[in-house]
Computed example of a mutant assay.
Amino acid sequence: MGNELAGKVAVVTGGATGLGSAMVERFVAEGARVVVGDIDAERGAAVAQRSGALFLRTDVGEPDQITALVDLAVERFGGLHIMCNNAGISGTMHKSILFDDFADFHRVMSVNVLGVMAGTGVAARHMSQNGGGSIINLSSVGGVQAGGGVMTYRASKAAVIHFTRSAAIELAQYEIRVNCLAPGNIPTDLLAKASTTMSPEKAERMTRAMREMMNQDRPLPREGTPEDVAEAAVYFAGDRSRYLTGTVLTVDGGTTAGKPLRARRTDTASNGSAGAPAGAL
């Protein structure tokens, strides 16, 4: 920990829990003054009090509330240098798209896509008149890599990536950098929230099974943490990344790079050489 963000002002949406709260705490630890926005007033206020940030209840599906959040940062701290559009929801998990009624489509899209687009636009209006800044949008490996389940969520996160790259092109002339983080296999309560229609026992079994499947698909042997994502966010927020824009950084232990190769032992290596990793041939 240091002072990488000293003198900077940051806004983090969805900062009450999970990845967002880790970002808030890390930004503060690096010297930033932070304003937290979240629909969860109780936990959002607790994070703010614990870290020394400010909190404003914010539904990012309502652009006017994002404007109020940014206005608060500017009024209280004198500016805005970092906008982290982190707020997101999963939607309801269905067995298959064959059974998906898309009842939550508009809510998922309003939070995951409109919230990011509006957050980028509102922040950029200030930054464009005040020397630029860094905008960090949260996608997911689900927006990078195709797969089954939670189709609306996957579509929304893919939209975030394309929007981020497009906004990066448009805003570069104002010295505004727009980058994207795509986390994967990070333990948060997002997966549990997707299974709210199941019984608690079934939801727990499903969550364990999916976590195990994710672990098997991840090349790095250790599981990621919210702090790993916060570390990447600090990098995009600070001056070390001043020549990066339109970048999508996967924070996923190598999941999107390819399937893991697990080393295997052989009894034929009499000359001391090891056998080839499984799947290498």
Rank of each mutant, 00 (worst) to 15 (best):
225 T>C: 03
25 E>N: 14
260 P>H: 02
18 G>Q: 01
258 G>S: 03
73 A>W: 01
178 V>S: 07
275 G>H: 01
209 A>C: 02
17 T>W: 03
90 S>G: 15
30 E>S: 11
134 S>F: 09
267 D>C: 02
194 A>T: 15
194 A>E: 00
200 P>T: 04
60 V>W: 05
59 D>Q: 08
233 A>F: 01
96 S>Y: 11
243 Y>M: 12
197 T>M: 13
147 G>V: 02
245 T>L: 09
127 M>L: 12
37 G>L: 07
1 M>E: 05
4 E>N: 10
260 P>C: 00
135 I>N: 04
202 K>E: 14
59 D>E: 12
1 M>F: 10
70 V>W: 08
78 G>T: 11
182 A>W: 10
161 I>C: 05
276 A>P: 14
159 A>H: 11
114 L>V: 13
2 G>Q: 11
92 T>E: 14
222 R>H: 13
124 A>I: 05
42 E>T: 15
29 A>D: 14
70 V>L: 08
267 D>T: 11
273 S>L: 13
255 T>A: 07
273 S>M: 10
105 F>A: 12
164 T>S: 15
167 A>H: 09
129 Q>I: 00
105 F>E: 12
94 H>I: 03
115 G>V: 08
33 R>A: 12
59 D>W: 07
149 G>T: 08
252 D>L: 04
256 T>R: 03
244 L>S: 15
249 L>W: 09
182 A>Q: 09
124 A>W: 11
161 I>E: 13
119 G>W: 10
83 M>L: 09
38 D>P: 01
202 K>D: 15
255 T>P: 00
109 M>N: 12
111 V>F: 08
14 G>D: 00
250 T>V: 01
114 L>Y: 01
111 V>L: 10
85 N>Q: 09
236 F>Y: 11
238 G>N: 07
111 V>E: 08
192 A>W: 05
67 T>C: 00
62 E>K: 13
179 N>R: 08
167 A>T: 05
193 K>Q: 15
191 L>S: 06
241 S>N: 05
106 H>Y: 07
183 P>F: 08
63 P>T: 05
245 T>M: 12
183 P>T: 01
143 G>V: 08
235 Y>K: 06
114 L>G: 02
174 Y>A: 15
190 L>D: 09
108 V>P: 06
225 T>H: 13
241 S>C: 05
172 A>L: 07
48 A>H: 02
16 A>Q: 10
257 A>T: 13
28 V>D: 03
105 F>C: 05
195 S>D: 03
49 Q>W: 00
60 V>E: 06
72 L>W: 01
141 V>T: 14
23 M>D: 03
274 A>F: 03
256 T>L: 03
42 E>Y: 02
1 M>S: 12
112 N>I: 14
22 A>K: 06
159 A>Y: 06
73 A>H: 05
211 R>K: 10
48 A>T: 03
79 G>Y: 05
148 G>D: 11
186 I>W: 00
146 A>K: 02
81 H>C: 01
